[in-house]
Write a protein that binds this DNA or RNA. Structure first.
Lengths: 192, 192, 192, 192
DNA sequence: CATGAATGAGCCTTCATTCAT
DNA sequence: GATGAATGAAGGCTCATTCAT
């Protein structure tokens, strides 16, 4: 009889939006952004094509939404590492959580990696990549210095490359055993 | 006015095919496979759209062609390394040539990496990746053993990860200086 | 908290309806009927899309409403002219009020003119145009006869054409100065 | 066996293009630009929707094409009037040819008038309207002066209004008899 | 009475592929 | 062998209209 309250609407809308974002992430991640049609996402989400545009202004906007949505999760994933005092413990967490992150958010990582390989990358991704580099490297360097490495700067470069290589290998092959193995080796070399 | 000989025709056809493949690689690599239209390739190659189908059955077939075409180049790139006797020299060549390969065949590497991240990957790419893994690792292990590494198997895994990480970093950022730096570090660590 | 009386409701409903009609007229007139969406009207009127259908059965019905709504105004605009006894005064009023009408109800006039140019015009507009012709011409003829014109029938045709030409020129160019100038010329020629 | 020559292609393409332009003009003129879909034009022209884009880049481009196409005709319609020496003869031609132009190019005139009533008018139409005003009025003034009118400037304004009014009346009602009548009155008043 | 989520048809446009010449 | 006109199936997006609440 009476219309829904604003709160009810907001809740409903947010839930549905999240559902769409989840479906979109799965398809974008597995098939690629361009290869995934709005229709496919709508069908998978069980809604009409038109309704998609009630939640997102355009396909590009949906992509933004997907990335930001997971970015929040990502923060949670690594947030409390920064506050740890022991450098060794930070490295342990960094390595193991990266593994967990890759497994649990595989579609997201695949999507981001794919996008980063394209020339006309959405600014969101480019910004993200830049930030990662600028913020991460000095932080890493400092950790490795505390671990007693002679050339922490050089070691940080190699460490970063191993992480990225391990990631792309896992995302390409989905070989979880090999990922676990590489993580063990990282722990062995960089932590005690 | 005399008709061309069969050989001349074959030569012409091969040249033209190679030109198409070159153009296709450039566009596929920079814009992505899906984002590149047959029309665009034809126009860039200076031929008609229809003629494209004289050389390739479909867009997918063209992609196969592109990959195989560069694969031959790739072989040449690394072929004579295998016959070297000195393990150190092999590693030096392997590392430096990988750098050269990334720079000179950037579009190709971008294309392959992109494709390998997709679920519905063309079998060609999947096969290629598998082969790389199966053949490369034991070869690498052997080299590192000769270099005196205590755990050559483990070291091979890390070496491979660094190579892949370095690659994806370069392909994403196109930062050549950083690539060169990483190559130097690889040489420092794995060769004398 | 006491329920509103029926009268209050009716009043409220009428006010709201008029507001919708005003907004619709403005948008239809400036952007065109087809180019104006129900959503845009609802948003501009500050009500929900759904409520629009409480007042109007369809977009076409809303258009009907808009036209009839202004038609009432139009009557008021010209109503008391008819009762004037002096033919000269009637003409003066007819000419000057037409100018005022064009300026004050520009959107309406633009809308009507636009609609009248379309084949599949809503019957409302067609009827309106016919009526205007049938009723107006004899009335005009009579006036011009009283003003001493030798061929009042012919003069009425030209007079009507000037009015329509002046109108469409103003609606197209929005050049108010030129409109005023034409009005002065009309007064000069047809009144004393 | 051999492909068509460039000339053959050009001829074919031009013919087809003209056919599309004719159909588009008819539909745009009768139903309005926005109300006419590319599909409808293609169907009426007996070709596929996709082929439309082989001839015109977009719907807006097609509109441009339609307008320019008829503009050429328009020039021919009025071109040789300018060179006549006798002012009276020029006016006779101007009036009668305007009538002919309205009848023979009714859809075009309807389209142009419709477009000129919209705020966001395509620049082509706006330019056209401006030019008409700036070039036409002094020309008209001069003619009427030669015809012995006391206030040629004022008379030109009225003459122009009658032409425009007559036009919009005909385009709205399609009443050819009334158009002819108005033309006779114009001739009577402005020529001998 | 009032809301806005939801639908589905239709719109403009692109593109791989075919085919008459 | 070579051309580019032609097709038809999508794709992204808009919008009038309906309906559960």
């Amino acid at each position: 009889m009476s219309p829904r309250t604003t709160e009810q609407y907001d809740k409903l809308k947010k839930d549905r939006k999240n559902e769409i974002l989840d479906v979109a992430l799965e398809l974008f991640g597995n098939k690629g952004f361009t290869q995934t049609s709005i229709s496919a996402i709508a069908k998978e989400a069980g809604i009409s094509k038109g309704l998609m545009y009630n939640y997102f202004e355009s396909k590009a906007d949906l992509l933004d939404g997907v990335i930001q949505h997971v970015d929040e999760d990502t923060m949670h994933f690594f947030a409390d590492i920064m506050v740890l005092e022991d450098a060794n413990e930070v490295l342990v967490q960094l390595i193991t959580r990266t593994g967990k992150f890759l497994k649990e958010k595989r579609e997201y990582n695949t999507l981001i990696t794919s996008l980063s390989l394209q020339k006309d990358v959405h600014s969101v991704v480019r910004d993200f990549a830049d930030k990662k580099m600028v913020e991460m490297m000095p932080f890493l360097e400092n950790l490795l210095k505390q671990q007693g490495f002679e050339n922490p700067e050089e070691e940080a470069v190699l460490f970063g490359a191993i992480i990225d290589g391990m990631s792309v290998q896992f995302l390409s092959t989905e070989n979880e055993a090999y990922l676990n193995k590489t993580i063990q080796l990282l722990l062995k070399r960089y932590t005690v």
